[in-house]
């Protein structure tokens, strides 16, 4: 049957505000009795090679966004979505960091596999509705070429805003992914 008009409207979003840490990362505000431990803190669980995904969040004047909270949702190395959820608060320099696993490929709606990617969701003071984006990996160039989502970005110059840059140091693989909320190299955000 065809869809009826849904009877209810989604509750409208409101900003998480500057005091979001009380609710989402309470240990940072020395609240250690309730909501402990912080949800999504520590290494993200999941099967696969361990990687670090880190970067900074900037506003339209290139100032660091020091009060954002970033959430992560992803598949494991086999492409299965288990419970690989992470949450971190940015520090005073706008920096965030996840200790997680490199995801595998997940089937896309066009019947092809999508390139390995992470989903990020960013909230902060001054963000009226949480921003969805994706992290792709520069060392997956071949998969990225055919990815359903990357290919939806008509301005090919903007695709690079979703591709994390790899570096290897001290035996760790680090992918750097900066998030620019606004401006010349503005990150691609999704209406999902």
């Amino acid at each position: 049957m065809l869809n009826k008009l849904p009877p209810l409207k989604e509750s409208p979003s409101q900003t998480a505000g500057p005091y979001v840490h009380i609710g989402l990362t309470p240990s940072l505000e020395r609240i250690t009795e309730a909501n402990v431990p912080d949800l999504g803190a520590g290494p993200v669980p999941g099967f696969g090679p361990r990687i670090i995904v880190a970067g900074r969040v900037f506003d339209g004047s290139a100032a660091p966004v020091s009060d954002a909270v970033v959430e992560l949702w992803q598949a494991d190395a086999d492409g299965n979505h288990g419970n690989a959820f992470g949450r971190v608060a940015c520090d005073g320099t706008g920096a965030y960091r996840f200790d997680t696993v490199k995801p595998g490929r997940v089937g896309g709606p066009d019947g092809k596999l999508m390139a390995p990617h992470l989903t990020l969701w960013i909230v902060a003071r001054g963000i009226n509705i949480g921003l969805h984006t994706r992290v792709y990996f520069e060392d997956e160039a071949e998969a990225n070429e055919t990815d359903f989502v990357l290919n939806r970005i008509m301005d090919v110059r903007r695709r690079k805003t979703l591709i994390a840059v790899r570096s290897d140091a001290d035996g760790k693989t680090v992918y750097t992914f900066d998030i620019r909320l606004q401006g010349g190299d503005e990150t691609v955000f999704f209406d999902i």
């Binding site: 339209g60 089937g107 709606p109 999508m114 955000f189 999704f190």
Partner: peptide, 18 residues
């Protein structure tokens, strides 16, 4: 919101398994 609002339109994605 002035400096934190994306200027580009959000890209419609629909939804995938992610």
């Amino acid at each position: 919101t002035t400096l934190r609002a994306p200027r580009h339109a959000l890209l419609s994605l629909g939804q995938t398994r992610s």
